[in-house]
Design a protein around this nucleic acid. Structure first.
Lengths: 339, 339
DNA sequence: GTGAAAGCGCTAACAG
DNA sequence: CTGTTAGCGCTTTCAC
């Protein structure tokens, strides 16, 4: 990282003919140093090409300039969110340490990762909200933690995506097209996005005074495997016309659905109408293109970092800032037909 | 991270009635400690719930248990590679620090990221191989660096993907289907994958004693934008039948191509045959499904980490291990027609 | 305002 | 084999 021999704060002090502490004060923008001295110190720093050793700084100051990000990497959304986070963090001199927690054995992975390590803050996107053991673990940590669209007791949400309004909009859209049998396939009520979406779905039906088909609300996991299973079970109802539209709340589920549809020679929008969450290359390039709800992933990453950093810099605020509400967009394309 | 009050090596020493150094020796599995004492120390460690402070360890030992990963996050391949890397690193107690370098201003981002930070090793996937400034920078660093499919002077490749054989296979396949005008759209010769693929492409033609259409080898960037431009220019030749197949070397390029094809009502395989690199949800779910060359992304991540760790643990080997050669797979689906 | 001194928690070199 | 000692590079008192 450095050039030849490590040049330390000591060298700078000597070069600038000041004491160790003075250099430190200059670096940290602390008070109690005259502008003149400060300037001289900075000149020496520049001349010597000195860079503070982050490790040594950390040891003394308990600041690490390091954020941990726990997420299931398999989710396509991840890379864009990560990009947003990293972008924001970069500007502030923090780095991102990545931990893939997959979707099982989460606690074990988290603990291994944290073991003896130090971070200034944590960004959390857990596969479920009801893992008591995990909550307990995170609660015992006294650094700021912030979640991505999760309602977890004692841990403030950094951002909260407005699934409600777009799911309602989408459901209304389907309803207005004449669909009554809409199957909603999502994760479990134990994660916020699914929970909120179900509420919105039901409310849309209620507003039109159409009875909501509770048996068509399918809760499971955010995997393509679950999508396959769900749609497979739905096949008879699709064929009988009882179900005329499918609304998937996650891209992996959507992919599973698509597979089974294909295998069974079911075409959309002819045989079945489709709406899904997450707008990405697949939904755009599929033919016909797919009606979707889009989340601004990059922006989500940036927002969540901003809040986390604020908490880190002003610990007193922790938990007191309302999460950024991220808007979503309902984009109508060609995957739904008029009944 | 810890529980209440920080418990240190000192506490352990006191508890186990041994000296500081002894505890350290036990922790580090160093020699010169009797099994009996070691056991006692570990008992105390367990009892006290002691965890070594990685920061303090790092400061003394110059080991950080931290790997830096530089990559353009935008690439879909990234998340699976990252998963592989993280998986392998996890087992060895290393963590992954992620740096998104995008595809411009790379050196600036790299330097900001490295500034004052310490890593044990670096995994590098640069957007181009011919950035002198960047090479110089990385050459000046004396920790192991390993690349993902890049030939960079002085920096050993961790893995090398066998693009050659599958590109040749794919080209032969197209040739045997009767295609002569195959457009090859890739990045620049300045990155290994494209360079090798071009070679293979030409060799396939040569083997069949068919003159290789050099003017149909299009070099550019690995972006959908370039894909669009390239295919746009090709349109007349496609319509005239001069070009009957397109072979894209990257998924983003492929997506650009697909867009333009769609906009111009060109269908595959009817109007044009298609082969692309990277097998992912899009190529599988598109209808018709797309003939592809697949790389085992997860495995690539694992392999590159393994080599890097080996270099870290045995610095003498640095640069002396041949890169793992990662096999690729040519998967025939429905995007090419018999001419 | 500024220098000197005291550690942060740990490893490594040195005596026994 | 094991205890003690000296720092790693830095921040933070504490005097002056």
């Amino acid at each position: 990282m450095d050039d030849k021999k490590k040049i330390t704060i000591k060298d700078v002090a000597k070069h600038a003919c000041v004491g160790l502490g003075t250099v430190s004060r200059a670096i940290n923008g602390a008070s109690g140093i005259s502008p003149k001295t400060r300037k001289r110190v900075f000149e020496s720093i520049k001349e010597l090409g000195y860079t503070p050793d982050v490790i040594a700084q950390s040891m003394r100051s308990n600041k690490y300039k390091n954020i941990a990000f726990f997420i299931d990497i398999s989710n396509v959304a991840f890379s864009k969110i990560a990009k947003g986070i990293q972008y924001e963090l970069d500007n502030l001199g923090y780095i991102l340490s990545l931990c893939d927690i997959g979707d099982k054995n989460v606690i074990e992975k988290v603990m291994t990762f944290m073991n003896g390590r130090k971070f200034d803050g944590i960004i959390l996107s857990l596969p479920r909200e009801d893992d008591q053991e995990l909550h307990q673990f995170f609660s015992s940590i006294k650094i700021p933690i912030v979640t991505l669209d999760r309602d977890i007791p004692d841990i403030p949400a950094g951002i909260t995506t407005d699934y409600f309004s777009s799911v309602k909009k989408a459901t209304h859209y389907l309803l207005s097209l004449g669909h009554k049998g809409i199957a909603l396939i999502g994760g479990s009520r134990h994660i916020r996005p699914t929970r909120v979406s179900i509420d919105a779905f039901q409310e849309a039906y209620n507003e039109k005074s159409i009875p909501c088909p509770e048996d068509l609300i399918l809760e499971g996991q955010l995997t393509s495997e679950f999508g396959r299973r769900a749609i497979y079970d739905l096949l008879p109802k699709i064929r009988s016309g009882q179900v005329s539209a499918i609304f998937t709340l996650n891209n992996q589920i959507f992919q599973g659905v698509l597979h089974v549809l294909r295998e069974n020679n079911l075409e959309y929008p002819k045989d079945i109408s489709l709406i899904t969450f997450e707008d990405y290359e697949l939904t755009q390039l599929l033919n016909p293109s797919v009606t979707v709800i889009r989340r601004p992933l990059l922006e989500m990453g940036k927002s969540v970092s901003r809040i986390l950093i604020k908490y880190i810099e002003e610990p007193d605020l922790y938990g007191k800032i309302a999460p950024s509400v991220i808007p979503t967009e309902f984009i109508i394309r060609d995957s739904c037909k008029f009944l």
